[in-house]
Design a protein around this nucleic acid. Structure first.
Lengths: 161, 161
DNA sequence: CGCAATTCAATTGCGCACAATCTAATTACG
DNA sequence: CGTAATTAGATTGTGCGCAATTGAATTGCG
C-alpha cells in the first residue's frame, strides 16, 4: 500500500478496504476451519452457535436465541426446523404465551456437547495463539461490534454520499 | 496449545465459543453498517468488495478476483452477472485463453469509485477508532486468518472427535 | 368489555457461500 | 501427433442472512 502524498482520502479508502477484506476474510476462514470439525457432528457453523447458546441455557424462546446471535426469525425458523429434524432440539409453544416457541435440547442434543468439546480444542490449536492473545482479540472484536452497532442505531444521515 | 486435563476443557470451550461469537458478530455488524451506505450505489457488500478489487486493478479474470476474495466460481458467476446487469462491469472471453472470462469496468463502473469514497469515510467514522487502532486490528485479523488458513491446509486428522 | 397497537414466529423472495458436478479449453507427456 | 491431466468457468443443490409481509396471540387503554 503505497503512501500517497497529501491527500488523506485515498489513504482512508485504502484502509477501509483493507479492514473490510480483513474481517470478511477472517470470518470466512473461521467458518471454513469449523466446517470439517462440525461435519461429523452433523452441524453447520450457525447451527453450532445455536447449540452453544442452548448448552449455556436450555429451553429458550426463539427470540432470545435471535437476540444472542443477532439473527431474526427468517434465519432461525428454518434452521431450528433442521435441528429438530436432526433430533437435537424440540420446539413447543409456550403454554403461558402461545406466541412464543420454546426451543429445548433433546437427549441427543445435550449429549452432543461432550463431542463438541473436542471441536473447541482443535480450534484453539488452529487459532494458534496464547490464551491471553485470544482474550484480547475477542475483546477487540466485541468492542468493534459495539461501536458499529451503536453508530448504526444512532443515525443514518449520510444521504449526501 | 494448552493441553490440560479433562475438566479444563470447559474453560477452553467458553473462550472458543466467545471468540466464535465475537468474530461472527463483528463481521455481521460490519455488513449491516455497510448496507445502508451501499444501497444508494446499488451494491451489496460482496459486490462492493468485487468492485474494490476492480478499482485496484481493472480487467481481471474471474479466478484472480476469486483468489483475492476467497470466493469460488459458484459464488462469483451469478454475482458478476448481476454486476453486468447493473451496467457496472463487462464480461468477455480472453482471446488467448478461451477458458478465462475477463471482468472489466464499464464507464459507469469506473465512475462509481468516486461515490464510494464517501462510503469509506462514513465507515471510518462508524468504526470510531484511531487510524493506528484500525491498522492494528486489520493486522491482527490478517494474522488470524493466515493462521487459520494454514492450520486448515495442513491436516484434518481430527476424525476421532 | 372491545378494539387498536404490539409482539412473536413463520413465510416469501433475493443474494450470497460452498460442495459437487459438468463442459470446454489448454497443457503435459509419451 | 494424440491422449491424459489440468484448469477456468458455469450449473445445481443446500443452507444461511435479511427485508418485508402475514397471522395469531397478547397487551394497553378507554
Amino acid at each position: 500500500m503505497q503512501k500517497k502524498a497529501g491527500n488523506a482520502d485515498n489513504f482512508e479508502i485504502e484502509l477501509d478496504a483493507q479492514l473490510c477484506f480483513a474481517i470478511y476474510g477472517a470470518a470466512h476462514a473461521f467458518t471454513r476451519t469449523y466446517k470439517p470439525l462440525l461435519e461429523p457432528l452433523g452441524l453447520t457453523y450457525p447451527q453450532y452457535l445455536v447449540m452453544i447458546t442452548l448448552w449455556e441455557e436450555d429451553d429458550q424462546p426463539v427470540k432470545a436465541i435471535g437476540d444472542r446471535l443477532g439473527l431474526d426469525s427468517g434465519t432461525l425458523s428454518p434452521l431450528l426446523k433442521r435441528l429438530e429434524q436432526s433430533g437435537l432440539v424440540a420446539r413447543k409453544r409456550d403454554r403461558d404465551d402461545e406466541r412464543q416457541v420454546r426451543i429445548s435440547l433433546t437427549k441427543r442434543g445435550t449429549e452432543l456437547k461432550t463431542q463438541a468439546a473436542g471441536v473447541a480444542g482443535a480450534i484453539g490449536k488452529a487459532v494458534g495463539c496464547s490464551f491471553e492473545e485470544a482474550v484480547a482479540l475477542r475483546d477487540e472484536l466485541i468492542a468493534l461490534k459495539q461501536r458499529l452497532t451503536k453508530a448504526g442505531s444512532e443515525k443514518e444521515a449520510l444521504s449526501s454520499v
